[in-house]
Design a binder for these strands. Sequence first.
DNA 1: TGATTAAAGTTAGATATCTAACTATATGAA
DNA 2: TTCATATAGTTAGATATCTAACTTTAATCA
Lengths: 147, 147
Amino acid sequence: MTSDPLAFEFFNEIGIIDQLIGTMLTNALPTGMTKAQFTVLNHFVRLGLTEKSPADLASAFQVRRPTITSTLARMENAGLVSIRADPRDARGKLVSLTPAGRDMRERCITALGSIAPALEPIIADAEMQAVLPTLRKLRVGLDKLRD
Amino acid sequence: MTSDPLAFEFFNEIGIIDQLIGTMLTNALPTGMTKAQFTVLNHFVRLGLTEKSPADLASAFQVRRPTITSTLARMENAGLVSIRADPRDARGKLVSLTPAGRDMRERCITALGSIAPALEPIIADAEMQAVLPTLRKLRVGLDKLRD
DNA sequence: TGATTAAAGTTAGATATCTAACTATATGAA
DNA sequence: TTCATATAGTTAGATATCTAACTTTAATCA
């Protein structure tokens, strides 16, 4: 990694970009909303899901189970999702969006749209498109390396 | 952002890559060491620094002041850095590496070197090199957008 | 069938990071 | 010189994330 300064710099840039974007997004989002919570809301709407288990969500977002437990607990508390026992598997639970969750997702989309103009001068779509395949490949490769 | 699904996917890939790499690095590092702490150690050694203020470190790593306060407190506690009052400015402090900090940095470098082979099949140096200018530009642009 | 192994969630304890608010010190302008 | 503003650090309180360990229930297999 430092015997390979290139990789070092590469992942360092990625880390800083993620951090800066993360803060920017969080600030743009409605009060109390976070990237992680928006990701959950958006996942349900984008894929047209009705119910999904916490374990499935964890695996979809590449985070560990305790992370999802924690995020879902906050979202349930905020009335954004509803969680019930899985009638077919007493170990499991099923998560679904509440109407408030759907509304919040819409508000987030609007809020995020408003910061897009600030990003445009920094990086063109064509450039993102050019880089995306590499990022995808890297993400898939790293994911396979886990466990 | 969702009106611009491209940017959305782009930053999403970056976030997942950062998270997966972060976990991988943390696991490879000596017990107790983290990416953030290694970054501090490495910064001093790479740049041949003797002393630097917490504020300078925060700005070098693009994190807020309280973040550095917290990380340095742990590192001082672990004997990796030493912190003294700035004799020229009573508000400030000066941070330096201890011998143990230097040793730890060496151990980290060795540990990180051992995971490089796992990364090689996933992404070639040439590809990282091809993408790096875009990442750098994006990082610089996002950084300018702050405050 | 009974015992072992696997899977889903949770809890506990850490670290990193952020914003807001506060203290202390320095700078600058009137 | 004095008051207003800016800077350095810290503290408090949140969220996200991880690993380790534990409980409950399911699945497998001998």
